[in-house]
């Protein structure tokens, strides 16, 4: 596997009483993006960051900085880096499978980073067995281990002949969807509006290919910078027309290619329902 590069981590995966050697490889890389520098608007110079004591205002060197946990107003418990490190359990380099979960049952919002998980040394038989068993039962495995000096939970799922281990964010790192969406009113769309929207979706069905997408931002930004340097006024674009409830049915009909005067084509046997949405409950 000359092209594969070096493993990020080598250890074992353990399911039940079976332990087999595995390796993790980074599955992704991050492409570069445009970076701006922070500058002083007054002088146009770059700025640099400085760390100062909030009371004395004097700069504090890196060695003088320490982590503190606030007990109450301005009282802190100081924690040295070794103490924080000691909270991480010792590593036995083993991904312990704690449970299997149905693939459809997983909340994707916890996903962090994917790694390719492969057998290491002579571990192919047990690896292939776990892979085929999980494939057959349509499950993924939840496992925990110390990874890169942090305790991590990973989700292991089959992918072709290999496995992909995705690190998961911890519960406190993920906002609750229920909480985030609680202000949205309970509206269930039915009848003609739903049918029209479904029809529009039907005209736009396809497949996803990541290669079809490229980043057009850099070029667009370069144009903007050029316009500004040439002293041209930057275009102010009018906001798009929002579809109010009263216009929505008409917008859907037009999107579906049905003229305003024309009655929407309905499937036989169905009574023409009212176009208005009905609040459920």
């Amino acid at each position: 596997m000359a092209v594969a590069g070096r493993a990020q981590w080598k250890g074992y995966i353990r399911f039940g009483e079976v332990t087999t050697p595995v390796a993790l490889y980074t599955a992704t890389s991050t492409s570069e993006r445009i970076s701006f520098h922070t500058v002083n608007r007054e002088t146009g110079n770059r700025v640099r960051r400085e760390f100062v004591d909030s009371v004395t205002g004097k700069p504090v060197e890196k060695e003088g900085q320490v982590k503190g946990y606030e007990l109450d107003n301005d009282r802190y418990v100081v924690l040295e880096p070794e103490e924080v490190a000691a909270a991480v359990p010792e590593s036995d380099k083993t991904l312990r499978v704690q449970a299997f979960i149905g693939c459809d049952d997983i909340d994707k919002v916890y996903f962090d980073r994917p790694y390719y998980l492969t057998p290491d040394k002579m571990g192919t038989d047990a690896f292939a067995l776990l892979r085929e068993g999980m494939r057959k039962k349509k499950v993924a495995a939840i496992a925990q281990t110390v990874l890169f000096r942090r305790m991590r939970t990973v989700l292991v799922r089959t992918h072709d002949k290999g496995l992909i281990a995705t690190t998961l964010n911890f519960d406190y790192e993920v906002r609750s969807a229920k909480e985030a969406f609680k202000e949205i009113p309970e509206i269930k769309i039915k009848g003609e509006m739903l049918d029209l929207a479904k029809h529009i979706i039907g005209t736009k069905k396809g497949t996803f290919s990541a290669d079809e997408f490229d980043d057009r931002y850099e070029a667009a930004l370069a144009d903007l910078v050029k316009a500004k340097m040439e002293g041209k006024a930057l275009p102010k674009r009018a906001p798009p027309k929002v579809s109010k409830s009263s216009d929505l049915l008409e917008a859907l009909r037009q999107s579906a290619g049905i003229k305003a005067t024309e009655q929407p084509r309905r499937r036989a046997g169905k009574a023409a329902p009212k176009g208005r949405a009905q609040a459920s409950r």
């Binding site: 760390f51 004591d53 009371v55 004395t56 504090v60 003088g64 900085q65 320490v66 982590k67 503190g68 946990y69 606030e70 802190y76 100081v78 924690l79």
Partner: peptide, 8 residues
């Protein structure tokens, strides 16, 4: 955690 000045 917050960052503190070890001295003060």
């Amino acid at each position: 955690f917050h960052t503190l000045n070890r001295k003060t």
